[in-house]
Nucleic acid binder design. Structure first.
Length: 852
RNA sequence: GCCCCUGUGGCGGAAUGGCAGACGCGGCAGACUCAAAAUCUGUUGCCCGCAAGGGCGUGGGAGUUCAAGUCUCCCCGGGGGCACCA
């Protein structure tokens, strides 16, 4: 009769014990080293999905492991609770966003608790709670005082039907995702956080984030996009106006054949007022969306203003002034000079509109007299031609020289540009944190005084009308000016939800404090030692948090610069998709596998097309609900499977077979200990010999390797190593006192090693073994160095690099002895055909290579 | 187009330049069973061979090395990021 592990009973019981004894509640303790483990908090969409299970399992293994290593661990959880889906639910189902959100949180909290995570639930927070966003408003006002906030006009995606601003992702093919109306570029007053004030610092500090994936650092580096170049000033001929342009190729200045202004350049505005055709051209440019994709799709078009501008270094030379749709107002100076010979885009533009093409850089071995530009611009390094005092110079020295000359003549200056733009945080939405300012006709923009925080969202809102419900509210926005007392209006914009998630990690340090963070707590816990989450947040969330941390330092709320000292980005959870003949997607539980490997629809028996494995998504129904898996197999099985099959940074394929394998292993370990009651009474580590000493070596080898694998996030290898130890214990049949002691030592180690991964099974077995206290409070096992080296070693014997035999010799045997044994091997004799070796290379205790 | 990552049995994957395929999934054979499930044992990279043994093998091609999955160069496939950024 084989016994079975009763996971339902066990998991429920241990979760209650942990909660009752408050074992995961964190307290500041300066006498102990701290370790802050954090997983990206979830959006309360309704149910947890497998991506969450993977994310939180990884973090929990780290938290439990570090706790066992003696660290004072902080491991909190909360909810990224503001956002559009709640408003959509309100509109579609008439459920208030707050109710929808809090109901979802209650459901998901229950699901997370069933996973057995070692979380300090007493620190739980939700960003939609006034107790959280009050402090966000305070931070914003402090940033405002410190000059880190700006309100200015910006072009945004405006949906003329829904009367709202859309995020770039909500503009599809130039049309609003919901209304389908062509999106317009509109200039509106918007709130910005001045992240560009830290462009250089955010870029340079990436070098110190040595526990971040290179990939993420590179992505941020590109996103910030530092480029060196120069501003060059061009006088408009016959007018008292000058145009400044930015270029990274000042060396090509003599190849300029036109200047192009952005459609939104102030000088374009000025000209368009008197030029109806230009105004029409600008309007045409604005009809396209502002998203990168929309710009990319758009054809390059230009408009000749008829004006000429004077070349700053070639007296008497002028080039035509154009307005072009591809010139961005937000980057550089909002104007460029076009050098068609050195830039493909400029070349295409010049060919289209019949502008000059003057070669100014050519390959070193080319001839200046015959060098011509065809359909391809020359963008490589080389020497300057047709460029007056620059002729003959290489590109880098030409750049230096031309900048020197421009600066001397006051016609320009060298500069550094960043691609990074200020962070637009205004959203015309209800379910977000209100921006705490008041607009007064007399006083202008007035910050809400601290004593009046939080600015609460009104409960009684309607989602009937399109647009911002806060703006439609009959009374909410009408207030008296805090400064002069006259009638004034509240700001009705709310914050981008990325603001909420930019400082939650700091709030966890003192989640109920009546200030954003308590310095004592923040100084102790920050930075987060290990952050775990999806790579999809590589840029926005992580960059915003890095900015926020610096802004909080400047406003006195924190002392650290970087929020996350270590970052791990996990892969996604994938599954095959299934499709019926009529095109319907089918859930995995709606199909049957037949003996011949065919797949049919349950019930009908109709054949099903099996799609490739891809990220689980509701639209393709290739999802498996975590709750169903936990019901059927328990949390430990789900956790173990999440860790066992794939390295955590790669995508993981969910499979029923994999879950079965995990479930089988749990029961194997259970039986291993449950069915060996007679062996459990082992004494302390007696020396033993033979089989017993071999088992002890296996135990201590496993301790060393699992420890190393966990340190390096190689959880799948740690799993494999634990399985090996378990196999070794199963195979161990020796009797006697020493054998019992070795067995006892081995199973204790096994339980401790698997504890962070399968905490419920671990506690249960710890109890069966008669261990003191809770497993989650036990110290991590230490490997005994004396048991990590064997007396004899197996040496690979190669002839000319090919394996021919293996020999077992005493550890650290003399090379001559090993050589003799190796050469005597029949296989070696055959391979060398009796010849004397020309050379023998010996790597101690590992390999010997005979070169014949 | 540019940048980064990646390619290993039927599958997921392992391997500080030193015995490729650990560990698992799946398969095959067997034990237990009236039978099945569960469990257990053995076996399982490919090819030749009754066997002993031999040959071939980490996307393809070259190179460095006593020794290459690992390092270098070229090519091919897969994934991701950026993409009018002047």
């Amino acid at each position: 009769m084989t016994s079975r592990y009763n996971f339902q009973e066990s998991e429920t019981r241990w979760q209650a014990v942990w909660e009752q004894r408050q074992v995961f509640a964190a307290r500041e303790d300066p006498s102990r080293p701290k370790y802050y483990v954090l997983e990206m908090f979830p959006y309360p969409s309704g149910r947890i999905h497998m991506g969450h299970v993977r994310n939180y399992t990884l973090g929990d293994v780290v938290a439990r492991y570090k706790r066992a290593r003696g660290y004072n661990v902080l491991h909190p959880m909360g909810w990224d609770a503001f956002g559009l889906p709640a408003e959509n639910a309100a509109r579609d189902s008439k459920i208030h966003p707050a109710k929808w959100t809090y109901d979802n949180i209650a459901t998901m909290r229950g699901e997370l608790k069933r996973m057995g995570l070692s979380l300090d639930w007493s620190r739980e927070l939700a960003t939609c709670h006034p107790g959280y966003y009050k402090h966000q408003q305070k931070l914003f006002l402090d940033f405002l005082k410190a000059g880190l906030v700006d309100r200015r006009e910006a072009f945004v995606n405006w949906d003329p039907v829904d009367h709202t601003v859309l995020a770039n992702e909500q503009v599809i093919d130039g049309k609003g995702w919901r209304s389908g109306a062509p999106v317009e570029k509109r200039k509106l007053a918007q709130w910005f956080l001045k992240i560009t004030a830290f462009s250089d610092e955010l870029l340079r500090a990436l070098g110190q984030l040595d526990r971040w994936p290179d990939k993420v650092r590179t992505m941020q580096e590109h996103w910030i996009g530092r480029s060196e170049g120069a501003y060059v000033t061009w006088k408009v001929a016959g007018r008292d106006t000058a145009i400044e342009v930015f270029t990274t190729r000042p060396d090509t200045l003599f190849g300029a054949s036109f200047l192009a202004l952005s459609p939104h350049h102030p000088f374009t505005d000025e000209l368009a007022r008197k030029d109806a055709k230009l105004a029409a051209f600008v309007a045409e440019c604005d009809r396209a969306g502002t998203s990168e994709a929309a710009i990319e799709a758009a054809e390059k078009i230009g408009y000749d203003t008829g004006l000429e501008v004077e070349h700053p270094l070639a007296p008497g030379r002028t080039v035509p002034l154009w307005v072009a749709n591809f010139v961005l107002m937000e980057y550089g100076a909002g104007a460029i000079f076009g050098c068609p010979s050195g830039d493909q885009r400029d070349l295409d533009f010049a060919r289209k509109y019949g502008l000059d093409v003057i070669p100014v850089v050519m390959p070193r071995d080319a001839d200046a007299k015959t060098f011509r530009i065809g359909d391809t611009a020359y963008t490589d390094d080389g020497v300057l031609i047709n460029s007056a005092f620059l002729d003959g110079l290489e590109v880098p020295s030409a750049k230096r020289k031309v900048i020197e000359r421009l600066e001397a003549l006051r016609g320009g200056r060298g500069t550094v540009q960043y691609r990074l733009r200020d962070w637009l945080v205004s959203r015309q939405r209800y379910w977000g944190c209100p921006i705490p300012v008041v607009h007064c006709d007399a006083c202008g923009v007035v910050p809400v005084p601290d004593r009046d925080l939080p600015v609460l969202l009104p409960d009684d809102v309607s989602f009937e009308k399109p647009g911002n419900p806060l703006d439609h509210h009959p009374t909410w926005k009408h207030v008296d000016c805090p400064r002069c007392g006259k009638k004034a209006r509240r700001e009705t914009d709310t914050f981008d939800t990325f603001v909420d998630s930019s400082w939650y990690f700091a709030r966890y340090c003192s989640p109920r404090a009546d200030e954003p963070v308590t310095r004592g707590a923040a100084d102790y816990w920050l930075p987060v030692d290990q952050y775990v989450g999806g790579v999809e947040h590589a840029i926005l969330h992580l960059l915003y948090s890095r900015f926020f941390t610096r802004a909080m330092r400047i406003t006195g709320h924190a002392k650290v610069d970087e929020p996350f000292a270590g970052l791990f980005t996990q892969g996604m959870v994938c599954h095959e998709s299934y499709r019926a003949a009529d095109g319907r997607w089918l859930y995995p539980e709606e199909i049957d596998r037949q003996a011949d490997g065919g797949v049919v629809e349950k019930g009908t028996g109709e054949p099903v097309t099996v799609g490739r494995r891809e990220v689980m998504s509701k639209s393709k129904k290739n999802v498996v609900a975590p709750s169903a898996i936990i019901d059927a197999y328990g949390a430990d099985t789900a956790r173990w499977f999440m860790l066992s099959d794939s390295p955590p940074e790669r995508d993981l394929e969910w499979s029923a077979a994999g879950i079965d394998g995990a479930w089988r292993f749990i029961n194997r370990v259970w039986r291993l200990i449950d069915e060996n009651a007679d062996r459990r009474e082992g004494a302390g580590g007696a020396a033993g010999d033979g089989a017993a000493i071999d088992l002890r070596r296996a135990t201590h080898g496993a301790i060393r390797d699992v420890t190393q694998h966990l340190e390096r996030f190689k959880f799948n290898s740690a799993v494999a190593r634990i399985r090996e130890l378990s196999n070794a214990i199963e195979a161990f049949t020796a009797g006697g006192a020493a054998a019992r002691a070795a067995w006892r030592e081995a199973v204790e180690a096994l339980v401790k090693l698997l504890g962070p991964m399968m905490p419920h099974l671990g506690e249960e077995l710890w109890q069966v073994l008669g261990g003191k206290g809770l497993l989650c409070e036990q110290a991590w096992p230490e490997a005994d160095p004396a048991l990590l080296v064997a007396d004899s070693v197996e040496i690979a014997v190669q002839v000319n690099g090919k394996l021919r035999a293996t020999v077992t010799v005493p550890r650290d045997a003399a090379q001559a002895d090993v050589e003799n044994v190796a050469l005597a091997q029949p296989a070696v004799q055959r391979a060398t055909e009796g010849r004397r070796p020309r050379k023998v290379i010996y790597r101690a205790n590992q390999v010997i290579n005979v070169v014949a």
